[in-house]
Design a binder for these strands. Structure first.
Length: 657
RNA sequence: GCGCCUGUAGCUCAGGGGAUAGAGCAACGGUUUCCUAAACCGUAGGUCACAGGUUCGAAUCCUGUCAGGCGUACCA
């Protein structure tokens, strides 16, 4: 049961007739921040008193008198300016715990109005190596899908992979010109990935070369502007002086940016020039950018050779991605990539044109949406479609196939504008009743703003990152086991399994525990941390519970079935119990704004309470049998809540650490 | 220029109308004859970027300023 919801509904009943919006006032019942104010508190008396012109404390007293909840709470206390502090009766806590104990779902009631969600997440580009940047969408989307499903909603997890884009033009071009046949036959994905990187570098090189004169000119102009501004006489007028200073600062910033950008570009070009083999290739393919585009275009037009190559490349690439998902424990209901929608794009554009939503502009087909300076282009001048077109076709398909209530796009916040345009267009297209949500998250930044680089300058590959996390976990597991007073207990094979769960859990947790809207700075230590507020802390609490069961040779299932009594005499027991009962509140909060970090925060708090309890309340050596049984039941419920909670985050538990 | 996001302890970040602003890491001190010390308990550390406003009440909402990031029609 959801205690908060129950309290709110009781308050709403008591407020009927007093306030014209009893539910809104009742929503001001919250968990207390500080235990000395009780377990929950009601904060409506101040605003309502103001509105009704009555002293808040009188009003609070009147509402308290009308409340019907002797079964739930101790006598409420009116405090301060009119807060109503509520302390749950121990009996009602116990009753709720007994109920949760006997329930597979730990007392979490399924949604009364289940909805259908399509969750669009992960979406890597096939044939480009996966790197750290892909992990956030995957992990956050997976956690949301799991949580929504647990709450009783219908969820379709869809991995909208990029399997039809320009990268295939690059790979096809690379295959036709630079293929190492033996390497391809031995390890196709590695070779394709090498070709992708090679062609990408060559394209980048020529684009860079072409852009160089203009970039230099820009810099010269900016420097001239700066010189002019700095030599100008300072204005005497105060406001004008301020503006002049501002312009000067901006010009300086501009020059610095351009200088840095140019230096970076020149460095990249110099790198290629320095590698003789690469420079030769670059020279041999001066129009590689154009050629790559034309390979892509030929693929899209159904050229048999390119299509055949695409069909050949795709399976090993998909298998490679699948390997990462297997290791992460992430699964999708469907994987319909961009290619799946390819033959629908023409119809989409025609339909939008026919309805007058799209129109021709400068040779392209565009949708102009209110509030946006630029249109959303859905067909280029050259006739090619864009990913917005594909996204529109995807919405159409999803609605036809699943009639969803909500579409969630778990995508980097940099695509915010794209989704605004997409959603605006979709609404005009007739999907105004569909809830469209961009569940955006911040970018993973490098320590200097240049993301994902190792010391040697390579991108941090996802697989390597997983290996690193697991290796660190293995060291910690081993050290800890070796240091046990009675000597090591865990076999090496088991240590490796534990390290896998702990390392990958830590990695996922780093992404889930922060508010998704903020960017974060990439750091191995932070991402792979296993001390403090981490998944490891909860896994450890879980393992300690199981250790008690093992040591005491306790048959938990039998204990549970026997329906023994729970006693909450010690403050640590009570605090733990209340925490256990707030699981459903945490889930509701987490899903309301699509924020898994609310669930991690809850679990951390819960594990914290358990650790306190563990220190203060001996279980196996409890003073008497009744206390021992009661504490064992608390342990059982804690273990199950942590396991269930972590599972909803896609994180595994282990029985020993 | 316009739009979105961010600014909270030394560092990384929670909290996004409610009472005295929190955690982890780092620092300092304590706890192991006792179910796992990956733990627990404590100390120290803050002008919640700045200025106005709304409110009984503002870190939280509004306006402005400053600083940073991102995006801004034919890339995804």
């Amino acid at each position: 049961m959801n205690i908060l919801a129950e309290l709110q509904s009781r308050f709403a009943a008591a407020l009927a007739g007093l306030a014209d919006d009893p539910r809104e006032m009742a929503a001001l019942v919250r968990p207390s921040q500080d235990p000395k104010f009780g377990d929950y508190q009601a904060n409506f008396a101040m605003p309502l008193g103001k509105r009704l012109g009555r002293p808040p404390r009188d009003l609070a007293a009147e509402v308290v008198a009308r409340l019907q909840f002797d079964d739930l709470c101790e006598a409420p206390e009116v405090a301060g300016p009119g807060f109503i502090n509520l302390r749950l009766k121990t009996d009602s806590l116990v009753a709720a715990l007994q109920q949760a104990l006997a329930d597979e779902r730990l007392g979490v009631t399924p949604a009364s109005n289940p909805r259908t969600y399509v969750v669009d997440y992960s979406a890597p580009n096939v044939a480009k190596p996966m790197h750290v940047g892909h992990i956030r969408s995957t992990v956050i989307g997976d956690a949301l899908a799991r949580t929504l499903r647990f709450l009783g909603h219908r969820v379709i997890g869809d991995n909208h992979i990029g399997d039809w884009g320009t990268q295939f033009g690059m790979i096809i071009f690379g295959y036709k010109h630079f293929l190492d046949r033996a390497a391809y036959e031995a390890r196709p994905v590695e070779e394709l990935s090498r070709l992708y990187r090679l062609v990408n570098r060559l394209v980048d090189y020529h684009e860079g070369r072409a852009a160089l004169p203009e970039r230099r000119e820009q810099l010269t102009r900016a420097e001239a502007d700066l010189a002019k501004l700095s030599s100008a006489a300072a204005p005497t007028d105060k406001a004008a002086a301020k503006n002049a200073a501002k312009a000067l600062r901006r010009a300086e910033g501009n020059v610095n940016d351009l200088r840095a950008g140019l230096a970076q570009l020149e460095a990249r070009l110099a790198e290629v020039d320095a590698e003789a083999a690469l420079a030769t290739l670059a020279e041999a393919h001066p129009h590689i950018g154009r050629d790559v585009l034309s390979e892509t275009a030929r693929l899209h037009q159904g050229d048999p050779e390119n299509l055949q190559l695409w069909r050949e490349f795709l399976p090993p690439c998909l298998a490679d991605i699948e390997r990462v998902y297997d290791r992460l424990g992430v699964a999708f209901d469907v994987t319909y990539g961009e290619s799946f929608y390819h033959d629908r794009l023409g119809t989409v554009v025609d339909d939008l044109l026919e309805r007058g939503i799209a129109c021709e502009s400068e040779g392209a087909i565009c949708v102009f949406n209110e509030g946006h300076d630029a249109p959303m282009v859905i067909r280029k001048q050259d006739g090619a479609y864009l990913y917005g077109t594909s996204d529109l076709a995807t919405i159409q398909y999803r609605v036809q196939e699943w009639s969803p209530d909500v579409l969630l796009y778990v995508v980097d916040h940099r695509q915010g504008l794209h989704f605004q345009q997409l959603f605006a267009t979709a609404r005009r297209w007739g999907y105004e009743r569909l809830e469209l949500q961009h569940v955006s998250f911040g970018t993973v930044l490098g320590e200097d703003g240049r993301p994902f680089k190792t010391r040697s300058g390579d991108t941090v590959g996802l697989w390597g990152l997983l290996d690193e996390a697991v290796a660190r976990a293995y060291r910690i597991v081993s050290d800890n086991d070796d240091a046990k007073p009675g000597g090591a207990e865990i076999s090496d094979e088991r240590r490796r399994q534990i390290a896998e769960a702990v390392g990958i859990g830590a990695l996922k947790y780093a992404d889930l525990a922060v508010n998704r809207t903020s960017d974060y700075t990439f750091s191995y230590d932070r991402m792979l941390a296993m001390n403090g507020n981490t998944a490891t802390y909860m896994q450890y609490a879980y393992a300690r519970v199981l250790s008690i069961f093992a040591k005491g040779d306790v048959d938990v299932a039998a204990l549970r079935a026997a329906g023994a009594a729970i006693h909450l005499d010690h403050p640590a027991e009570r605090a733990l119990a209340l925490g256990l009962l707030q699981f459903s509140e945490a889930l509701a909060d987490s899903v309301a704004e699509y924020r898994p970090n609310l669930l991690t925060a809850y679990l951390f708090e819960l594990a914290n309470r358990y650790s306190s309890f563990f220190e203060q309340c001996p279980v196996l050596k409890a003073p008497d049998e009744a206390t021992r049984t009661s504490r064992l039941l608390l342990c059982d419920l804690t273990a199950r809540t942590i396991r269930q909670g972590l599972q909803l985050l896609g994180i595994r538990v282990v029985d020993r650490m």
